[in-house]
Amino acid sequence: MNNIVIDLTMPLYTGMRVFPGDPEVKLEIVHTHEANTWELRRLEMGSHTGTHVDAYSHMHEGGATLDEIPLHRFFGKARVVERHSDWPAETGLFFTDEAGMELADKIVSRKPGFVGGNITEELQRTLLGHSIVTYTDLINLERIPKEQNFMFYGLPLKIKNGDGSPVRAIAILEG
């Protein structure tokens, strides 16, 4: 049985769209094969650039930072869900339609380790306050069948005192 792997990550590139006021993205080649026999790029960007994860400290002073959140909180069983469906407990939730504060109590009651997709900033702040990791700027969620479990991986860089990090996010569906 072959599994299906879906990349949920937007590519990073110079000049890409960022949240207003965040640092611009700049990727610059500083070493080349021709001059150095290897290639190396300098990366300049904010910690919440492209597909990224938010630590609790992102919106809550004194909240846990990336290096303090246990690694197992960044992967696990997940679903793309409809707003009004019955969601399983302790399963990551992803929304393709906008999810706002009207869903906060329902989400928190299901105790997901992580939530992502099209969620409002206000909902994101509430979830982070309940120690629920949030993911932003995911792509290709529409390729995942709704209401079907899959394995999600969205591992951050281990940034000391990090408030967020770009991730390579993937979904693995049983084939």
Rank of each mutant, 00 (worst) to 15 (best):
9 T>G: 03
25 V>Y: 00
66 L>Y: 02
169 A>W: 10
83 R>F: 10
100 G>Q: 06
127 L>A: 06
151 M>L: 15
47 S>C: 10
144 I>R: 02
146 K>H: 10
137 D>L: 14
72 H>Q: 08
174 E>M: 07
160 K>H: 10
169 A>P: 07
153 Y>L: 09
26 K>C: 10
100 G>A: 11
68 E>D: 04
13 Y>P: 00
162 G>T: 02
149 N>Q: 06
141 L>F: 08
52 H>D: 07
21 G>M: 04
148 Q>M: 15
126 T>I: 13
136 T>V: 14
145 P>N: 07
113 G>S: 12
24 E>C: 04
22 D>P: 01
127 L>N: 06
103 L>D: 02
79 R>S: 00
1 M>K: 13
127 L>D: 06
139 I>H: 03
164 G>Y: 03
64 A>E: 08
115 V>R: 04
8 L>E: 00
52 H>P: 01
148 Q>R: 15
94 F>C: 10
48 H>Q: 14
28 E>M: 09
33 H>L: 15
61 E>L: 14
75 F>E: 12
108 V>A: 07
162 G>D: 03
130 H>Q: 13
88 P>C: 02
156 P>A: 05
24 E>A: 15
158 K>A: 14
48 H>Y: 13
4 I>E: 11
129 G>N: 12
68 E>C: 03
54 D>C: 15
31 H>L: 10
100 G>L: 09
118 N>M: 11
12 L>E: 06
144 I>S: 05
94 F>K: 09
22 D>F: 12
108 V>K: 08
171 A>D: 09
31 H>F: 10
90 E>L: 06
66 L>A: 00
24 E>S: 13
64 A>W: 07
70 P>M: 08
124 Q>N: 15
103 L>A: 03
87 W>S: 01
152 F>G: 01
41 R>W: 07
45 M>K: 09
75 F>L: 08
80 V>T: 01
74 F>Q: 09
135 Y>C: 11
29 I>R: 13
139 I>P: 02
128 L>A: 09
42 R>W: 04
166 P>Q: 10
110 R>W: 02
77 K>C: 05
81 V>W: 05
134 T>F: 03
